[in-house]
Amino acid sequence: MLDFNNVLLDFTKDVWSYISLGYFKQMTKGGQVGSFTMPHEVDPANFGNCHSNLLMAKAAIASVSTNVSTFKRDVTDIFARFTWLGLTHSLVAYKKSLHGIKMLQVNESQLSEELEKNWVVLAETIQTAMRIYAVPEPYETLKELTRGDVDKESISFFIRNLDLPEEEKLNLLNLIPHSYTGEAGNLAISIDEALGSLSVFKIK
């Protein structure tokens, strides 16, 4: 549980950052209070609540492992109290994170703008194709390209001059940052299926 909580802690920080960068918007409800100084802003309160509860859970569970008497007295009640305290804070954190996720809305225009500036994301699949067809030094060759200014034209020029079958070149030339996701889709599906089997993650 501690390992999972640590992962969730990082997740809440990441989501908070993505909201700040404008990658996510938060759906609002009538009467919802915004930021103290900027009423138009909606604080990611669920993720903040999740973060605080995870820290409380971490402290409670950690105290169980350190609160051992040198005189070997019975500390069962202390173990039980802090274990349940850690579990309770963890469950509250899980529910708050899920409620926060339900309020998220992808800011497609912002993401589209970011992707248009980052044709370098296609380097992964280009390198994979180069390795499949045994093109010499795929990593080193791509490193020279991708550590400079990369745009649609430079990527297209690079692909056309590769020693690859024409069909493979055409496949690569048809890729755009907006549609290329690599294995992300399959990974997301497998995670969703794994979480779906755990009743604790079902919001009522």
Rank of each mutant, 00 (worst) to 15 (best):
L98A: 07
D74L: 06
L91W: 07
R73P: 00
T66W: 04
L104M: 13
W84I: 05
G86P: 12
Q105H: 11
T88G: 11
R81N: 08
T76P: 05
D74S: 10
T88A: 15
A80C: 03
L98C: 07
G86D: 13
T66M: 13
A80V: 10
T66P: 02
I101L: 14
L85V: 04
H89E: 15
V75K: 01
H89F: 15
F71I: 12
T70Y: 07
A93C: 03
L85D: 14
M103A: 13
K102G: 04
V75S: 02
G100W: 03
V75Q: 05
T76M: 05
K72E: 15
L104A: 10
D77F: 10
W84R: 14
L87Y: 09
F79A: 03
S90T: 15
T83P: 03
A93L: 01
S69M: 09
F79T: 06
D77M: 07
T88R: 13
M103N: 09
S97E: 01
K96D: 07
F79N: 07
T88D: 15
N67I: 07
D74N: 15
V92Y: 10
V68D: 09
L98Y: 09
K95T: 08
H99D: 03
V92Q: 03
D77S: 11
L98I: 10
D74A: 09
D77K: 09
S90E: 13
K96P: 00
L98R: 06
Q105M: 13
F79L: 05
L85A: 14
L91F: 10
V75E: 04
S90K: 08
K102V: 02
T88I: 13
L87Q: 14
H99W: 02
L87N: 13
D74H: 09
S69G: 12
T66E: 11
N67E: 07
M103I: 03
T88Y: 15
I78D: 08
K102D: 08
K102H: 07
K72L: 15
M103W: 02
M103D: 09
F79C: 01
N67P: 01
K96Q: 04
K95F: 02
K102M: 05
T76G: 14
S97Q: 01
